[in-house]
């Protein structure tokens, strides 16, 4: 199926992302939906890290003093993948803050966070 063992981590990402999409769509608890979305972002972060990693004695993407740039470029891990993850983590925090504020207010108004019991609107 896979040509190398190194591709196996992708399966982990696929399963994790699928479970999270399922939970976000079909769970009725708003808080569980929010957690599922946040974990989904983490699954994608994992995918970025897998794609930017280097096996063997890899070094972080910070150039040590005196090292030749071409040698550094051949042993350090991918900074672009790290950059995407850093950005997505901050954005994920903003998502959580927004949704938490809304969920707290939903609870205040309705006394529940089960979507099945919140039926003011018909959709």
């Amino acid at each position: 199926m896979f040509s190398t063992v190194g591709q196996l981590p992708y399966v982990l990402v696929a399963i994790m992302a699928s479970i999270c999409i399922y939970a976000a769509l079909f769970k009725s608890n708003l808080f569980k939906k929010m957690l599922a979305i946040f974990l989904m972002t983490d699954a994608v972060n994992l995918l970025f890290i897998i794609q930017g990693y280097r096996l063997g004695n890899a070094i972080p993407p910070i150039i040590p003093p005196g090292m030749d740039p071409s040698e550094f470029a051949s042993i350090a891990v991918d900074p672009l993948a790290h950059y995407f993850v850093v950005t997505a983590v901050v954005i994920g925090l903003a998502e959580v803050a927004t949704l938490t504020a809304l969920i707290i207010y939903t609870y205040k108004h309705y006394g529940t966070i089960e979507t099945k019991k919140i039926k003011e609107l018909r959709g």
């Binding site: 992302a17 999409i21 976000a24 769509l25 708003l30 939906k33 929010m34 979305i37 989904m40 972002t41 699954a43 994608v44 995918l47 970025f48 794609q51 672009l80 993948a81 995407f84 997505a88 998502e95 927004t98 949704l99 809304l102 969920i103 207010y105 939903t106 108004h109 309705y110 919140i118 003011e120 609107l121 959709g123």
Partner: peptide
């Protein structure tokens, strides 16, 4: 009441959509 309900409904689905888009960007990067 209903405005907050509409907001949380929109919020969950829109953010889920953006997360799915994020997955596709990671696959494009690969």
């Amino acid at each position: 009441k209903a405005a907050v309900e509409a907001g949380i409904k929109y919020g969950i689905y829109d953010i889920l959509a953006i997360s799915i888009y994020y997955l596709s960007t990671a696959m494009i990067f690969g």
